[in-house]
Amino acid sequence: MKKRLLITFCAVLVVLTACASTNLRPEVGTKLKSGNVAAMFYMDHKTIDYDELVYKVLWNEKRQQLATFGSFWDIDKDLSNTLANTMGKIGISTKSVNQLLFDEDDYNALRLCIVDNKGPDGKNWPLTLTPGLQKQFKDLDVDYLVVLRTVSFSAEVNSMFKHILMRMPSILIIYDINNGKEEYRELFGMGGGHKYNKSARELEEDGLKQLKKLANQWIATAVEKQFPKTLSLATN
């Protein structure tokens, strides 16, 4: 019986290990820590995707509601700044891309490099910057570009317990400016639980005041808690 339990435990461990995301190679982590970094947050759709399970006793219903905030909140700039500031706190010399690329055309060119990188097979290809952007970053003495790209806010609402599980499912990309090579690409989860009083959409009150506060907190917490391990900084 003990043997069977041990085999089952080992099998579960193997499965869990396979699910865990990989970390940045330690040698790259060392260079990243000693170099200069540009940080960028980018959200594809500026929306909150509410998904709700409504309890109807004899059946349950799944309902969906989109809330589009679009240009109402410059989330990319706001969260790029938070990403850069928090990376600074954990010892990485970082500037937000908004502090480096003042020209709107340059910023849009960078955005396009990040968004339009699907190959003919429909899969994402490694990030490649245009020669112009590459040179610009080199001239600014930037060694690495760190990109957090997310699709939208996902809000899973449980109407029975007045609880929302908020998520910003993201991809973390690390690009070596000097070599012109993507060094890292992995899923990176951020988010947390939130209680509401009457409506799940209280998050949108006062020009998204609550959501802005939460999103900034998630980024800061994720960077402080996960980056040292993910970017192999702790081993340096």
């Binding site: 709700e52 799944k62 309902r63 989109l66 589009t68 905030f69 679009g70």
Partner: peptide, 28 residues
């Protein structure tokens, strides 16, 4: 906030579209 926002490039008008109720996506 609306379910959909769209800016008409020629007129520079911004459209905010609201649905009457959340969309029922499945019954369990």
């Amino acid at each position: 906030f609306p379910a959909k926002m769209k800016t008409d490039e020629s007129s520079q008008l911004e459209l905010w579209a609201y649905q009457s109720r959340p969309t029922l996506t499945s019954v369990i």
